[in-house]
């Protein structure tokens, strides 16, 4: 496989978001797999920076919606306004009509607004007053949310979490990275970033990622993981077939980013925490184990004895 320009993208983003190469790579993986991304972390960890940089690197048309409790679906989707001149209703598209939408602090909005966004994500279109308006392609939503136990939030229900292909947590950078962040000239970075490739190249990349070979053994591995989540008593919410598909496509995108034209178990293992974690729920309501649920799942299955 020839050198793919997306590895440049990883490097470029890493210059902005210092010290989090894995998260950056996962975020890119999510976009290549044509899925929506949920970033979950405390305020100020670089969620917005990441999504903004992603949009710039890939040359996507970008808009940002700040979710608040009084945000109405129409504020986001757009509105039909009566045009006096033409004597008819004209549709004014909302901010959701762009290729990359940053839905900031998605869990602050009311469930109604949340579900309106999630509907748009799922269907790739917006229906308003009996008229459907197609969303641009590609269409990504990067949702960010604060951890659920913060007050004044409406946590996303499980069915809606399922629509995000991946959920990543950024976490604190290590000391060195933080130091270099301090020494770097903030503000300069944004100007540096230029799209690494034209948009149609990115779409081609998405296409070739889906063509990556998954052998029987590997599919068995994925199935074994999924079935374990269904059989074992440790998981209250097992992985759905949608999650299985998500896992495969994410793993393929990961392999693509690693310049391989076939899948190996490492690909699955790399993406599993971000794909599965938000879909699983522990059977015991003990929150301390929550963080490592996907790890439990991973460790239950031997990838080579299949």
């Amino acid at each position: 496989m020839n050198e793919n320009p997306l590895s440049n993208a990883t490097n470029t983003i890493s210059q902005v978001l210092i010290g989090k190469p894995k998260q950056v790579k996962l975020a890119l993986t999510c976009l290549i797999a044509d899925g929506h991304l949920l970033i979950e972390d405390l305020p100020g960890m670089g969620k917005t920076t990441l999504s903004h940089t992603l949009a710039m690197v890939l040359g996507l048309q970008y808009s940002r919606i700040q979710f608040t409790s009084d945000l109405l679906p129409a504020d986001m989707l757009g509105i039909n306004i009566f045009d006096n001149k033409e004597q008819e209703f004209r549709f004014h598209p909302g901010p959701v009509f762009s290729q990359l939408v940053l839905a900031d602090e998605i869990n602050r909005a009311s469930p109604k607004t949340q579900s309106a966004l999630l509907e748009a994500m799922e269907e790739g279109q917006v229906s308003l007053d009996g008229k459907t308006h197609l969303l641009p392609k590609p269409f990504f939503v990067i949702g960010t949310q604060n951890p659920q136990h913060q007050s004044g939030t409406y946590p996303l229900p499980e069915s809606q979490l399922d629509r995000f292909l991946m959920r990543i947590q950024l976490g604190y950078p290590n000391k060195e990275a933080e130091k270099s962040m301090l020494t770097a000239q903030i503000g300069d970075n944004k100007t540096i970033i230029k799209p690494v490739m034209p948009l149609n190249h990115f779409i081609q990349a998405q296409e070739s990622a889906t063509k990556i070979h998954a052998s029987d053994e590997l599919l068995n591995y994925i199935l074994a993981l999924v079935t374990h989540s269904r059989e074992s008593n440790q998981f209250a919410n097992p992985l759905s077939p949608r999650a299985t598909k998500a896992l495969l496509s994410a793993a393929k995108a990961w392999a693509y980013l690693n310049n391989r034209d076939y899948l190996i178990p490492e690909d699955v293992q790399a993406v599993l925490p971000s794909v599965a974690e938000h879909r699983l729920r522990s059977a015991s309501s003990d929150f301390s184990t929550q963080g490592s649920l996907s790890q439990i799942l991973l460790e239950a299955i031997d990838p080579i004895a299949l």
Partner: peptide, 8 residues
């Protein structure tokens, strides 16, 4: 009951 759920 899960019957032969793992593909092994």
């Amino acid at each position: 009951m899960w019957l032969n759920a793992d593909q092994k």
